[in-house]
Design a protein around this nucleic acid. Sequence first.
RNA 1: GGCCCCGUAGCUCAGCUGGAUAGAGCACUCGCCUUCUAAGCGAGUGGUCGCAGGUUCGAAUCCUGCCGGGGUCGCCA
Length: 592
Amino acid sequence: MTNIFRDVRGLILAAIGDLVAHGVLPPGLDLSRVAVEPPRDPAHGDVATNAALVLAGIVKQNPMALAERIAPAIAARQLRSGDFHGGGLGVVAARPGFLNIRLPAAVWHAQLRALLRAGTGYGDTDIGAGARVNVEYVSANPTGPMHVGHGRGAVVGDALAALLAKAGFQVHREYYINDAGAQVDILARSLFLRYREALGEDVGTIPEGLYPGEYLIETGQALAARDGDKWLGASEVEWLGSVRDFAVAQMMALIRADLDRLGVRHDWFASERRLVEAGAIEECLAALDERGLIYTGILAPPKGKTPDDWEPRPQTLFRATRFGDDVDRPLKKSDGSWTYFAADIAYHRDKFRRGFANLIDVWGADHGGYVKRMQAAVRAVTDGAATLDVKICQLVNLFDRGKPVRMSKRAGTFVTLREVVDEVGKDVFRFMMLTRRNDQALDFDFAKVTEQSKENPVFYVQYAHARAASVMRHAAEVFAPEELSDQALAGAALDLLTDPAELALIRQLAQWPRIVEGAAEAHEPHRLAFYLQEVAAQFHMLWNKGRDEATLRFILASDPILTRARLALVRGVALVIASGLAVIGVTPVEEM
RNA sequence: GGCCCCGUAGCUCAGCUGGAUAGAGCACUCGCCUUCUAAGCGAGUGGUCGCAGGUUCGAAUCCUGCCGGGGUCGCCA
């Protein structure tokens, strides 16, 4: 665990502690808002802190004056502890009350050394402290192939899970199978038609309201192969259960195969039907009922817009308004069966009872209106002991050479996730899904994402990694393999890395642990993709400097000592990129 | 109409949970290949952060109200 920013923050807090001990500052200060970060302007040093600005607000003192008292305290503290390689930090108070700190180059060299020793484990942190997190994602209905939107949720969820694991959480990845509602009955009826068709019957066009997709033809044949004609004369009540189970199993196999192709995995597939059959819903609602959170009432029509067929009707309702929702929510349909919401409450309660107090759900844009009620339900059902964060993934708009690819099930231009992944590859798809914040709509152009140019971020980052590998291949012609291992390079004369561009790159690499922590805390895996593009840019820049000035090239035949130091930097770049791509789920390439 | 998300350079988007003169890519102009991958790099041009208030040392960021775009809206999931 090497995070220079965290180390400096520790130093600053210690220095403030010293001031408290000397009575300069009062005890019991809230220091949570003290931030240590790289300043935007390099002229402001290597790291900057707002400590004096934060404290000024608390103790009602002039921030600049405070900064000037804290600055020497930091320097004194550091000299006493001997940390940060002795050298002495330049601590300067600046304008409104910032403290700008310049770290000795040796600190950065030590960061690079630590990076090489940690390998792709660099950036691992323990901010999660082993806490258990449940991440639920995809959860596509088992009624057909997944579309690109599902793919986005799959990647966001999978990368978020990997990110949290890297940040020290104990992560559990779940998929909720909606195999109990009316949808799967429709699926069963649709399949039954294909089944009859497989047995030689002409079923004509698929009626409105059933799934017309051709993917069911094969499944119908499979059902016919398994059961023969045993259902032909039977009534629906007889065949429905068996056909439905078969259909769901087949659809889940299809979905799992697609996820597999994407490299997306889950630890647990939770079945709604199993929850229903185990009586989990009744049990859950009974618990809510005991607390007076369920009642029979009549909902008012949606404000400002009454549906044509609206009629007041008594319903079984959950008091969601007590927990921050806008209206109370129905739990029972008019036919007496549970709503999806009722089952979902039971499911989230089940997660909590299995030991998860940190819940994250990744949903599609069309479920945005569902967030409040689910969070309300989680609060109710766990007495506020669990938190639910919902990541809404906005739409993916498909283009080909700038022209929109219209998605229409009727027109037969429906593009499945499978088709897209087969076309562009899993790595490209995964990276692209993280080039936007999850709540921002994303344009995906088939032509652009496979293009080999810097306009294509996937390529750009991969190219940096491949270039680093290329340098190492050339180095292998000069050095013995044992001289080029990461452990060996960690022992190179890193203090020879003194060029501003080299130090800038090391600083960039040293940010990786901080990026991981920030992204994990915010539940925002896309930050990794953006950071990797910055690392790649820095590296390409340094590469080209070597083109202009031969003395800056990585491999210098005349100077093996300096060469090994630079190779250490090159490996550092490759390791950070590989480390980041691993979280995103993309394979770094050695050559392209 | 209610609720949720979004509005930042001509275009596509970042902006690290309130910090310093608001960043990157594309496009446009100029420059860099006998040499580790030019599949790349450098320099320049380009901004009322939708609008108006408020909170405070300090706001693109937080609050309120408008404007514009998208999603959603009792027994679908």
